[in-house]
Design a protein around this nucleic acid. Structure first.
Length: 492
RNA sequence: GGCGGCGUAGCCAAGUGGUAAGGCAGCGGUCUGCAAAACCGCAAUACCCGGGUUCGAAUCCCGGCGCCGCCUCCA
C-alpha cells in the first residue's frame, strides 16, 4: 500500500511494524454547524479508517472535539449562554450531521476540556526541557528551541518571519512563538495550573490527547490541508519537544479543500453550505459519492450539478440492481441467495472479467493512496458487464451467479466506501417518496395512472397509453416497460 | 514577496514513461407498439502553450500563461 506523506511530499510505501495502527485525526471546534468542508474531511478519514480495518489492521482511531476556544467563548457571549452549552449543542449537531453520511464513530473521541491535566503535564515537560517559557501568566513555546520547526510545512523560520504578517504578541520572545497556556481573563473559562488560572492554547490539546491515548509515536495523523501550518507544525514541535520521541507521526495525511466558485469554502469567506441544509434537499449517499468521486488530495468544487450527477450514478446502480434482482430467483438482496457465500469467482466464465476482478481492482485502487475515484470506476465497469450479460435477449446462463458475485463484492466495497450498500428497493422507494413529497404528488395517483395505462396497453389503445405517459412525464416521472411489468422512476 | 498545488472530452474525474478508466450529458444502433431503461458503437487525432530528454511523454526537464491554497482562526 502506498500513502502520500505530507512530511516527505511523496507517496511512500506504507510500512508499519505489527498489525496495529494508531490513527489520530483533528476533529472540529464546536462553535457552529459543520459545512461541506468538514463533511469531506470526515468522509475521507472515515473511508481510510474503514479501509485499514477491512485490510485486517487493528486500528485505534482517535478524533477529538475542541470544546474550549476563543470562537466558542465568543459565540457564548453572542448567544448569552454558558460556553459549555455551546460546545454541547454543536457536538450533538456534529453527530446529527455525520450520521446520515455514514461516518463511523472513532474508537476514542476525547474532548479537550476533559484532558487539562494531560496538557498541563506536557506543558511542564516542555518547560523542563527548555522548549517553553512563562510570560505574564502565559506559557509560550519557543520555536527557536526546536531546530526542525517548519519541517512539515517546508518553511524555515527566516522565511516565515520574512513573510511576516505575524502578530507582535504580548510578551513573546519571537513573533512565531505560540501559546501553550493562556492566562484567562475574568469572565473566561479557566483552570488552575502551576502558572496561574488559565486555559490551554489550541495546539497543545492534540499533542496531549494523542500521546495520552496512542503514545508518543502515531502511525497516521490526518486533517485538512489548512491544518498543516501552524497547527500540525506546532504539534510536531510540542510532541517531539516534550517526549523526545521522533517521529511524532509516521504518515501525515491531509485532505484537499472543498471550493465554491473556485474559492476555498470557509467560514471567513462566508461561502459555505452547512451539511444540514444540503441534506434537506439532497440524498446523503449522493453527497458521500460526490465527495469520494475525487481523489482526497485534490480540491473539489461543490456544485448542484456535481451532486445531481452523483445521484444519477447511484440511481443507475440501484435501478439496475432492482431490475436484476426482480428477475433473479433470489429476488432480494438478503433473502438467501441460492449460491453459497463462499462461491468462488472462478466458477464464472472468463467473459465476466470485470466482475471476477472487481475486488482485486478495488484493492489495487485503494492501495494506491486511497484512490476512491478509480475504485468507483471499477464498480461501474463491473455493473456494465453484468447488465450486458444479464439483460440480453437470451441472458448468459451464468448471469445469476454474476449478479450474486457482484452483490457480494459490493458488500465488501460498501463496507469501505460507505456507498453502494443500500438495499436497491429501499433506495428506489426513497427516491420516489422524496420526489412525490417535493412535488406535492401522491403515490397512489401515480400508481393508479400506471395501472390505467397498463389496461390501455392491453387493449392496444396506445393513444390513451401514450397520453398517460406524457402526462406523467410532465411531472418528471418516467415510465419503463419491462416484460414483467411497468416501473416508474423519477427524472433527476 | 516566500513556499506548495493544479490545468485531461460539453461538464465532473482517474491515469504520472508505452500509446487515454469511470460518471453525467450528447449522437447512432439493438431492443420496444412507440418510448424509457439497458447494452453495443461514436465522441478528447490526443491531455493549457512553447521548447527539450527518450525508440516512445498527458506522464520526466526547462520556459511561459492561467487558476488555487498556505504564510492569520479555519476540515
Amino acid at each position: 500500500m502506498k500513502v502520500f506523506n505530507t512530511l516527505s511530499g511523496r507517496k511512500e510505501e506504507f510500512n508499519i511494524t505489527g498489525n496495529r495502527i494508531r490513527m489520530y485525526v483533528c476533529g472540529v471546534t464546536v462553535y457552529d454547524y459543520c459545512h461541506i468542508g468538514h463533511a469531506r474531511s470526515q468522509v475521507v478519514f472515515d473511508t481510510i479508517y474503514r479501509y485499514l480495518k477491512w485490510k485486517g489492521y487493528e486500528v485505534t482511531y482517535v478524533r477529538n472535539f475542541t470544546d474550549v476556544d476563543d470562537k466558542i467563548i465568543n459565540r457564548a457571549r453572542e448567544e448569552n449562554l454558558p460556553w459549555q452549552d455551546i460546545a454541547e449543542k454543536y457536538i450533538e449537531a456534529f453527530y446529527q450531521d455525520m450520521e446520515p453520511l455514514g461516518i463511523e464513530r472513532p474508537d476514542i473521541e476525547p474532548r479537550a476540556t476533559e484532558h487539562i491535566p494531560q496538557m498541563i503535564q506536557m506543558i511542564q515537560a516542555l518547560l523542563d526541557r527548555g522548549h517553553a517559557y512563562i510570560s505574564e501568566g502565559n506559557v509560550y513555546f519557543n520555536v527557536k528551541s526546536f531546530p526542525e520547526y517548519g519541517k512539515l510545512s517546508k518553511r524555515t523560520l527566516d522565511e516565515m518571519i520574512a513573510g511576516a504578517r505575524v502578530e507582535p504578541g504580548e510578551g513573546k520572545q519571537n513573533p512565531l512563538d505560540f501559546a501553550l497556556w493562556k492566562a484567562s481573563k475574568p469572565d473566561e473559562p479557566s483552570w488552575d495550573s502551576p502558572w496561574g488560572p488559565g486555559r490551554p492554547g489550541w495546539h497543545i490539546e492534540c499533542s496531549a490527547m494523542s500521546t495520552h491515548y496512542l503514545g508518543p509515536s502515531l502511525d497516521i495523523h490526518g486533517g485538512g490541508l489548512d491544518l498543516i501550518f501552524p497547527h500540525h507544525e506546532n504539534e510536531i514541535a510540542q510532541s517531539e519537544g516534550a517526549t523526545g520521541v521522533k517521529p511524532f507521526v509516521r504518515y501525515w495525511i491531509h485532505n484537499g479543500f472543498v471550493r465554491v466558485n473556485q474559492e476555498k469554502m470557509s467560514k471567513s469567506l462566508g461561502n459555505f453550505f452547512t451539511i444540514r441544509e444540503i441534506l434537506e434537499t439532497h440524498d446523503p449517499e449522493a453527497l458521500r459519492l460526490f465527495l469520494l468521486g475525487r481523489h482526497y488530495r485534490s480540491p473539489v468544487d461543490f456544485t448542484e450539478k456535481g451532486l445531481r450527477d452523483a445521484l444519477a450514478a447511484l440511481e443507475r446502480m440501484y435501478f439496475s440492481l432492482y431490475i436484476l434482482l426482480n428477475r433473479s430467483s433470489f429476488k432480494t438482496i438478503d433473502k438467501a441467495p441460492r449460491f453459497s457465500s463462499t462461491m468462488n469467482a472462478d466458477e464464472l466464465p472468463d467473459e465476466f472479467s470485470h466482475l471476477k476482478n472487481l475486488i482485486t481492482r478495488f484493492k489495487a485502487a485503494m492501495d494506491d493512496d486511497f484512490n476512491t475515484p478509480q475504485a468507483i470506476g471499477a464498480v461501474f465497469d463491473a455493473l456494465n458487464q453484468l447488465n450486458n450479460f444479464a439483460l440480453k435477449r437470451t441472458p448468459h446462463p451464468a448471469w445469476e451467479k454474476a449478479l450474486f458475485l457482484f452483490i457480494s463484492s459490493l458488500k465488501h466495497i460498501s463496507a469501505v466506501l460507505g456507498v453502494f450498500g443500500s438495499d436497491p428497493v429501499i433506495f428506489i422507494e426513497k427516491l420516489r417518496d422524496r420526489h412525490c413529497q417535493t412535488h406535492g404528488l401522491k403515490r397512489e395517483e401515480i400508481e393508479k395512472l400506471v395501472n390505467q395505462r397498463a389496461d390501455a396497453r392491453k387493449r392496444k389503445d396506445y393513444q390513451q397509453a401514450d397520453a398517460i405517459r406524457a402526462e406523467l412525464l410532465k411531472k418528471n416521472i418516467i415510465l419503463e416497460d419491462y416484460p414483467d411489468g411497468t416501473q416508474w422512476r423519477v427524472r433527476i
